[in-house]
């Protein structure tokens, strides 16, 4: 569902400044999608209710409990690769879906759901901030 307004979750102004999100425009569609991605990533039980059984009371309750924004960005530029365990190529979107269903003890959103899309958009914004290119590795080499 498209919302022209995204709620301001705690820490967003700091995140926005730290990751240079405004370089995509102060109030663009993209920026708003990044913000929704931020909300989903750090406050999953509030913003991704439909796709998780976790609540804020759980010790591990959001994507950010296990991942950093940086790791998410590296995940994006290293996605769409062959996974020997699954014996097929796995997209970033599928990784996100799997984490909703698995570690988040919830349900799988569709490929087009903002709960998936905006995580990708968030990852893209962070990857832009880190100046990553395709296949960049965490050790920087």
């Amino acid at each position: 569902m498209f919302r022209s307004q995204v709620s301001n979750a705690p820490g967003w102004p700091q995140f926005r400044a730290a990751y240079g999100v405004d370089s995509f425009g102060g109030d663009g569609y993209f920026t708003r999608a990044v913000q929704n991605g931020y909300n989903l990533f750090y406050f999953t039980p509030d913003y991704g209710k439909r796709f998780t059984r976790k609540t804020a009371a759980d010790a591990v309750h959001s994507c950010s409990s296990c991942h950093t924004a940086e790791a998410l960005a590296y995940g994006l530029v290293n996605s769409d690769r062959f996974d020997a365990g699954l014996d097929r190529r796995v997209s970033f979107e599928e990784r996100v879906m799997r984490c909703y269903a698995g570690p988040m003890d919830g349900f799988i959103p569709t490929l087009y759901d903002p709960a998936v899309r905006d995580i990708r958009v968030l990852a893209r914004a962070v990857a832009h901030h880190l100046r990553l290119s395709e296949g960049a590795r965490t050790d920087g080499s």
């Binding site: 880190l130 990553l132 395709e134 296949g135």
Partner: peptide
């Protein structure tokens, strides 16, 4: 996959 490879070959940066 091909587009992504091109961006690696040309060293284009995300975003």
């Amino acid at each position: 996959a091909y587009s992504r490879f091109l961006s690696a070959a040309l060293d284009q940066k995300m975003g």
